[in-house]
Structure formats: structure tokens, C-alpha cells
Amino acid sequence: MHFNSRLIMAAALSLLIASTASAQYGNRNKKKHKGPPPAPQGFVQHAESGKSLLVPKDQASLGTVFHALADRDTQMHFVSKAPVETIEGNSNRTIGYAVVRADDRLIAGEWHLPVNSIDTGNKTRNKHLTKREWLNAKKNPYIIFKILEVKDQKLAKEGEGFKTYSATLVGEFTIHGVTNKKTIPNATLSFRTQSASTEKVAQGDLLAIRAKYSVLLSDYKVEHPVISKKKKFANEVKIDTSLVLSTVAPEKQG
């Protein structure tokens, strides 16, 4: 009798452990199948594939649409030079679009950079950046730049199959759920028409947008003791971006 009750207890215990383990495994699988988080309200929504944005029809009708090609080259690199430490990071998962008129004038665009794609070279630090005290990726999953105006677009260089312009980009930057107006001078736009050599790497006519600028984290209410007291992370973050976009959407690239 005594032996039987022990046996029943052991069986019940193993059942409990097995059910807990299977529930956890199930939850983990559920998390794995979850797609990228949707764009916040008031911004352009993501395509089902998660590789591009659904360009609003009123903007698409204004000119040629170029889609950002993610998961390839480095698109964004940042440097934080604090007295204690210099921290660098990058991402290549920016999705978005640019609308260009027939005369090569950039007239609209929006880009979304997933906060959880920022790689500083240290997995633990990457996780910290997504936490509530930092960029709060759960609540604000994307860093967003939306073009409002492009000023002083001037031809800088022209050659066989390409044209390069310098321009000033005026737009709205949204970081940590806070939106501020941002002017980026000395940006460079290069258009390259499709050719046998470009086709090997990417389909369609290509546009590259290059810009360097800096943002103050305090302007976006990112305030952490590591920035203000410990001086391990600078308030001013220098950002270097290089986006390559194509007239062929990422879903249709080979």
C-alpha cells in the first residue's frame, strides 16, 4: 500500500513536470512563429512578408517607387562616444520606400528600422537596448524616419548609367515613441539604371541614399542612469546611413 502511494505520487509528479515542459515548449514555438510587430498607428503599414512597406496609393501615383533592400549590406551604423566607453552598433534590416519623380526629385519616403535588429557585437547589450529603460522595443518596435521635404537637390556627378545628387532631407524622426523634426544636410542620392552588372546583385533600377547626422537621446526621452550618471553611453549618438533601394520590391528579388 505504502509502495503504491509512492508510485502514484511519482507518476503524478512526472506528469506535472511533463505537462509544464510541453506547455513551455508550446509557448516557445508560438513565439517563434510570431511575425514582426506591426507599424505603429499613423505610419505606413508593413506588407505581409515583412520585407517592405505598403506604399500609400496617393504617394505611389506621384512617381516611381523604390523599395529598400534589407538583409544585405550595413544600412545604419551608430557610434556613441562616451567618456568611459565607445559603443558602436549597426543594422541591415531597415525596410521602407522612396518615391521619385521623373526628373529624379525625391518627393516622399518612409523607413522603419526594427529596434531589435540593432547589433552592438554583444548579445547581452543588444538585449539591454530593447528594454523598457532604453528604447522599449515592446512598446516602440521601430525607429522611423518620414520625409517631409527635400531641399536643394543638385546634380553632383553624372556618368554612364548613373546620376548623383546632393540634397538636404527634412523629415520626422520617431525614436522611443517620440517624434521630432529633423533636418539632414549634405545627404547624397545616387541613381543607377539596371544593367548586366547590377542584375547580378539586385533586380531593377537602383537608388542609394547616404546621410550622416546625429541625434540627442534626451530629445527622444531616452534617459538612463548609464547616460546621465555613469557616462557609459553618450547622449549624442552619431548615425551613418546607407540605404540601397530598388524599383523591384524585395519580395520579387531573385
Binding site: 553632383a156 556618368g159 548613373f162 548623383t164 547624397t188 545616387s190 543607377r192
Partner: peptide
């Protein structure tokens, strides 16, 4: 692909 376009 943009190395000769003056992008950088």
C-alpha cells in the same frame, strides 16, 4: 555597385 557614382 555605387563605388564609381560619387555616393561616398
Amino acid at each position: 555597385l555605387f563605388s564609381d557614382t560619387g555616393l561616398n
